[in-house]
């Protein structure tokens, strides 16, 4: 029930922000369509912790700034590698990164964070390992140090 209410408010805010017309008639259409979507989603059984991870919210304020900082850093690094004179300064490498998350959702967040930072792309998740392609050895070693892994586990485990 908590998730259904949260989903309704989420949908409603998207609707209100996109609409821009706030007459009674049109807003009631919006409320009706949001209720319909919530009802359909509940019938499909997709309103749960995985679709709407409310339990992650407390950890986000600490994780988001860090990941943004990390993305900016790796953007600058990858740009430098692309623009280096002569040949691009790369040494691609394919490797398995271990994960310490204890749910699928946590591993998905970790894999997406890896892909989000340019220079590393997660290729496949198998078991508790993620196959990663990195643009250079230094980038790969950076990832294998595991700070991102620790932070995602922390984000996931806040209220576990």
């Amino acid at each position: 029930m908590k998730h259904a209410v949260a989903l309704f408010f989420l949908l409603m805010s998207v609707w209100l922000l996109n609409s821009g017309h706030y007459t009674v008639l049109i807003t009631s259409f919006g409320i009706a369509s949001c209720l319909l979507v919530v009802w359909l989603s509940r019938r499909m059984g997709i309103v749960d912790d995985e679709a709407l991870p409310l339990h992650l919210l407390p950890g986000l304020p600490r994780y988001l700034p860090w990941i943004v900082k990390e993305v900016v850093k790796s953007n600058l690094d990858t740009s430098r590698r692309i623009l280096s004179l002569g040949r691009p300064d790369i040494s691609p490498r394919l490797f398995d990164a271990p994960t310490t998350q204890h749910s699928d959702l946590g591993r998905v967040i970790y894999a997406n964070s890896i892909t989000l930072t340019p220079g590393t792309v997660s290729i496949r998740v198998h078991g508790t390992k993620i196959t990663v392609h990195a643009i250079a050895d230094a980038v790969a070693d950076d990832l294998l140090e595991g700070e991102m892994d620790r932070r995602v586990t922390l984000l996931e485990g806040e209220t576990e």
Binding site: V71, V72, N75, T78, S79, I82, L83, P88, I90, P92, T115, L116, T117, P118, G119, T120, V121, H133, I135
Partner: peptide, 29 residues
């Protein structure tokens, strides 16, 4: 500037997997 760097990387890097990183620059920063 970052969008253009991503475009250059898409042309300059040697294989598909490395080009993903270049596209990532455009997509993110």
């Amino acid at each position: 500037i970052f969008v253009i760097i991503g475009g250059i990387g898409l042309l300059r890097l040697p294989d598909f997997y490395t080009r993903i990183h270049a596209a990532g620059i455009t997509d993110t920063l």
